[in-house]
Amino acid sequence: MIESKERRREIIVKRVAQEFRDGDVVNLGIGLPTLVANYLPEGIDITLQSENGFVGMGPAPEPGGEDPDLTNAGAQPVTALDGAAFFDSCMSFSIIRGGHVDATVLGALQVDKKGNLANWMIPGKMVPGMGGAMDLVVGAKKVILAMEHTAKGQPKILNECTLPLTAKEQVNLIVTDMGVIEVTDRGLVLKEIAPDTAVDEVVEATEAPLIIAEDLKVMEV
C-alpha cells in the first residue's frame, strides 16, 4: 500500500492513460478521471467527448480566456481543439449510447465481481443523480473505473454491490492504486499490481475473490 494520497492518485491516472489506442474517442468523468488526459503516452492522440455537447475538448484556457459558452460537463471552462465539433444533447447521447465512444473512464462507489457498478447515489445521504453515467456505462465500448482501491479502509470491490446500481455487468477494467483488475466471465482477474505492493495486501483489501494472473505484472507507473 502506498502511503501518499497524491502518489496513489497519480498511479491510477497514469495507468488508465495507457489503456487507449491512438485515435480513440474517450469520455472522461469529472474529478480523478479528468486528470487522465494529462498522462497520455507519447504518440497516443485521443479525442475527448464531453456529454454536454462536443468532441475535441481541450484543456482549461489561460486565465482570462474563459468562454461562458464553452465548458465541460462539470461547468468548468475548457477549450475546443482544432477539429472539434459541437452538437445537441440528443446527438451527444446518440454518440454515447450508439457505441461510438471507445472508452469511458468513471469513478466508483462500489463495483462487484460481475462488473456491476454503483456510483450515483447513497440512499439517505447523497443523491446527486446519475447525469450521463448510466448511458455512458451502457454505451461505451470499454468501461474503465479509475478509483482508490478502498474507502476509509473498507473494500469497494465487493461480492455484490449494496448501493443502487448505475448499470448491470458493464464494467471491463478496474484500475486502482493497488492494481489492475479485469472483469471476466471467470471472475475478477488481478493482472497487474502496483509497485511496492504485495498480492496478499490486494487480496485483503478486496472483498470479491481475485484470480491472480499467471503472468502478473507490475504496473508501469
Binding site: 445537441d88 444533447s89 446519475m130 453515467a133 454505451g139
Partner: peptide, 22 residues
C-alpha cells in the same frame, strides 16, 4: 434541491441524461 427533496417540499424525478434528451 436536495434539501427540499429531503424535507418533502419538492418532488425529484431523476432520469438518465440520454434518456431525458431522447
Amino acid at each position: 434541491t436536495g434539501r427540499q427533496m429531503n424535507e418533502g417540499e419538492l418532488e425529484v424525478d431523476l432520469v438518465p441524461q440520454g434518456t431525458l434528451a431522447e
